[in-house]
Design a protein around this nucleic acid. Structure first.
Lengths: 356, 356
DNA sequence: GTGAAAGCGCTAACAT
DNA sequence: ATGTTAGCGCTTTCAC
């Protein structure tokens, strides 16, 4: 067992600068009560010796751990990884999260927890005990899990909740799913579509509801009755297929579909084609997830692009500011998603009976 | 600032079980010299109190940090993330790495460092000082960076080097790139191709060379002269284009190309089509990276699939075993890549002059 | 404004 | 086989 020691510690710096440990500590942490000249001297020694504080020691001494945990759903994340389709969500979280963390000397650790199990509490407590993170970024469906929120809050860990607006502790961040759904719907309306079906995500996800609201509102604004155009999905490919079958089944089938994630969109696409319809000539399709599968699909699909990296970055900022003791507004942070128009949406082709 | 304390410490467990701290510590770390009944008693208390050791404290006391760092090239990783094409490499490393880490109470932290800069040394030392990882997983081109190896070795940090076989400290892991290149080449030979071009990756990557060797060997075994069929690339789309132009330019152009990564393959595909050739009817193409872009390309491309997750998992195993003081073989670990045949490779269509 | 002392939770080395 | 002691590197009191 190699007994590794820190090569340059605060002691070395103190000795080199000819000051006390305390003064060095103050400089490191940008605390007051240090004369500029002392500051300078200490900083010079730090630079000279290449000193970097040990986060383990900092954590031990009761200060911050400089660790932020990104909590993700184990089952879903692993399934995504296994498919090797470009998980996107975790990737993009890391993209935004790591870069922002680095700016502040923080690290991001991805933790997978089992939502469905009852041991979520045990898993979470274990993660907290071993890591003692300064903050946790929660993604749906964890963002609204009261048990998780309660535990984190009890431990005075800063919380950033992505995709949730329900009451409770923590900072709220959304991508304005309602507006995004509206954008998607309006795009289709402008292309002449009236029968615009919507495949919703599971109700356990708050954002599923927001998207439905946006779609319904846009439909109403366009003077279209959205009755019978709604289908419930569960984010799975199969549910996308089933929903599309339902929407295409009646005697007044839809001419366009907005599906709440990539898998359901792909499922719908398959069904649309089975019905002998071409995309986008005969049928328009919009995905609510701009993942690689969607982008490299044929045709490349029009999609709602969610700024996950940016949201993760903001989440990290909020946590760090909060931990630094700054007063941070609890107003929800909104980083709006946008619509990327590709080749799965086109002007509605008049149905035969219309032209007759 | 909230002064967060461990809620349940080793002291509580010791008190509850009526033993000394040391005994608890021994039980936690599966050390000898504890009677089964004591073990039992301590474990019961641990379970009862829900005790989990603080890794910060464990690290402080000179033992392991239970942290493994996955070192990646900053520039390239960020570029991949920004493109949102499904980075795959980082994703897959996390997939294999995190799961294996979890089994042993370890955590994986992704660190990005700037290879090209001279401050790589400073960056690395800073990461070591602040994190004090037990091990580091190196990916190309870091795997063979002597400076990095030296620093890590000096700090007695276990090293897992993916894609390198050069001398130096650390465990070696490869996906048998030579064999993979051979597989790809043989596949094309079987389809009747003779003029099989190869676009190599930059020589800074050891595996670039291995792939070339595999291709050349397979060509030789098939009795084909590989002269003039080699093109140097640098993993960029543009270099793939340039290389393909060169290979298609002469009076005896290639009928198939193997490119050493996804971007170059895509570049080559573009050029092939500009030459009026259809894939796979007129031209066969194999990618040496089975990323989402390749899989969802049109047609879906035949590709070498690299078992990155599995390699990362093995890397973690090696590091953990090494840290546990076990004698671990320094023999290179080989997790062979495989060829996934899709629709970008087909039987060679006889050239006009052949049929004449 | 600066320093000295105590202690965070744990393990190493040395008792017994 | 078990307990005791002395730190690890840092921050937090609380002195000066």
């Amino acid at each position: 067992m190699a007994r590794r020691r820190q090569s340059v510690t605060i002691k070395h710096v103190a000795a080199d600068a000819g000051v006390s440990l305390q003064t060095v500590s103050r400089v490191i942490n940008n605390e007051p009560n240090v004369r500029p000249e002392m500051q300078e001297r200490v900083r010079a020694s730090i630079a000279k010796l290449g000193y970097v504080p040990s986060i383990a020691a900092q954590r031990m001494a009761g200060r911050r751990s400089y660790l932020i945990v990104a909590l993700n759903d184990r089952e879903r994340t692993i399934a995504d990884w296994r498919k090797r389709e470009g998980t996107d969500w975790v990737d993009q979280m890391m993209f935004g999260g790591i870069l922002k963390c680095t700016e502040h000397g923080y690290r991001l650790i991805v933790e997978l927890v089992d939502t469905h199990s009852d041991h979520i509490e045990r898993e979470l407590l274990a993660a907290i005990a071993s890591l003692q993170p300064d903050g946790v970024i929660l993604t749906p469906p964890h963002s609204q899990n009261q048990k998780i929120l309660e535990i984190l809050d009890d431990h005075k860990i800063s919380i950033a909740r992505i995709g949730s607006l329900t009451d409770g502790p923590g900072f709220l961040l959304t991508m304005d799913d309602e507006h995004a759904a509206r954008l998607a719907t309006e795009h289709l309306v402008e292309l002449g579509h009236h029968r615009i079906g919507f495949i919703a995500g599971p109700p356990e996800y708050e954002l599923s509801g927001w998207r439905v609201v946006g779609w319904k509102a846009a439909m109403r604004d366009a003077g279209i009755d959205s009755g019978g155009l709604f289908a419930q999905g569960d984010f799975s490919f199969a549910s996308g297929r089933a929903a599309a079958e339902a929407l295409l089944g009646g005697d007044d089938p839809v001419t366009a579909i907005i599906a709440s994630n990539d898998q359901m969109t792909l499922g719908a696409l398959e069904v649309v084609r089975e019905h002998g319809l071409r995309v986008p000539e005969d049928f328009s399709l919009i995905s609510f997830d701009d993942t690689p599968v969607i982008r490299f699909s044929h045709p490349p699909l029009t999609a709602v692009q969610q700024p996950i990296a940016e949201v993760a970055s903001r989440a990290v900022e909020l946590i760090i500011s909060d931990q630094a003791g700054k007063k941070v507004s609890r107003e929800p942070v909104v980083v709006p998603a946008s619509l990327v128009v590709r080749n799965s949406t086109a002007r509605r082709r008049p149905a035969l009976k219309d032209t007759a």
